[in-house]
């Protein structure tokens, strides 16, 4: 509860900062834009958060998303209709997650290592299968018949019209729907209960007769699937994806969001609502920084990572402080 209050205070502070920095920044256009990005990050964060709850981690999210974006583009370039193409990409994501999960549970490898290898492998594959960026404009030119359905998909999932004007934060809605579903699984279902038990003490879960491997694999599948959904969203949103850069560092943003939202990297902790709020911090922070001026000077982009790092560090310190206090009270 405390954790959620903390991240909520952080969010409110950031919105207030945004409002104070610039009247325009609090206009609906900018807010929708931020909301859309919050939704996008949220999708990735939800996936990795589930995995973090089980005590594992996924470092391959960015590369999986990048590969997904490239594959999605290439498939459509080959004439596969957008929706089946998206389906194939998501299925691919599931298989990637399944492979991670099986390597971790069957061969008893560490999730950190398996997904670290994944980070390199999927990035390499993306570069191998496409030497140059894929772009929706090229695809639409080559396959004019797809234009409508791509535009429709962009409208539904991203909230942008054919002229790329942002009408509503569709990605936020996508994320909220996913968060409701995952929240329901986490907090109401047997599966979620087992995830928490595994995260805290896998051995105790096993000694309770729970087929723990199955639930751990499921978490890997969810993470990679949502990462590939992220890739699809990204291509639809920015219309182009470069195999060298698409998705780089996203795993770190996603993990940051999950931790800000109250997930402990040791596992066993985190709530859907916290994850949702945690994911909302970074996009807002980035946006606010672009409006804030110090002594009449804008903050250079290069400083943004510093601020992200400091925010997470501060959040962790405050959290640890409260945890200690709580422990003393016990």
């Amino acid at each position: 509860m405390l954790r959620i209050a903390g991240v909520l205070i952080l969010l409110v502070t950031l919105y207030v900062t945004l409002r104070l920095a610039d009247e325009n920044a609090f206009g609906s256009r900018n807010l929708i834009d931020v909301a859309n990005r919050q939704g996008f990050y949220g999708v990735l964060t939800l996936g990795v958060a589930v995995l973090i709850v089980t005590g594992a981690i996924d470092l391959s999210i960015g590369s999986v998303a990048g590969l997904a974006a490239i594959t999605f583009g290439l498939l459509m370039g080959e004439g596969v209709r957008p929706i089946p193409a998206a389906g194939i990409v998501l299925l691919g994501g599931m298989l990637v997650g399944l492979a991670h999960g099986l390597l971790v549970t069957r061969l008893k490898l560490q999730a950190f290592l398996v997904t670290l290898c994944g980070l390199f492998i999927y990035r390499g594959i993306a570069r191998y299968i496409s030497k140059r960026p894929v772009g929706l404009s090229d695809i639409q030119q080559e396959n004019p018949s797809m234009t409508d359905s791509i535009d429709w998909l962009r409208w539904v999932l991203i909230g942008k019209d054919e002229n790329s004007a942002l009408l509503f934060p569709a990605q936020l809605f996508v994320m909220i729907m996913l968060a409701v579903a995952i929240g329901f699984i986490l907090h109401k279902s047997v599966i979620g209960r087992y995830w928490y038990a595994i995260g805290y003490n896998e051995s105790a879960a096993r000694y309770s007769g729970i087929a723990t491997d199955r639930y751990r694999v499921l978490a890997f599948v969810i993470s990679s699937t949502l990462a590939s959904l992220g890739g699809i969203l990204m291509l639809l949103d920015v219309r182009t994806a470069d195999p060298n850069t698409a998705g780089t560092n996203w795993e770190l943003f996603a993990i940051t969001g999950a931790v800000l939202g109250g997930c402990s990297l040791k596992g066993g902790e985190g709530t859907a609502i916290g994850i949702l709020l945690g994911a909302a911090v970074l996009p807002l922070l980035q946006n606010a920084m672009s409006f804030v001026e110090i002594n009449g000077k804008e903050i250079p982009d290069s400083v943004i990572p510093v601020v992200i790092g400091l925010t997470l560090l501060l959040g962790t310190i405050v959290d640890e402080f409260f945890r200690r206090r709580a422990a003393v009270r016990k």
Partner: peptide, 18 residues
Amino acid sequence: RLNGLVLEKSVQFNLSLP
């Protein structure tokens, strides 16, 4: 403590687990 219980969780959580 290692295998029998999820120590950080409630009595109810543990009793329900299996």
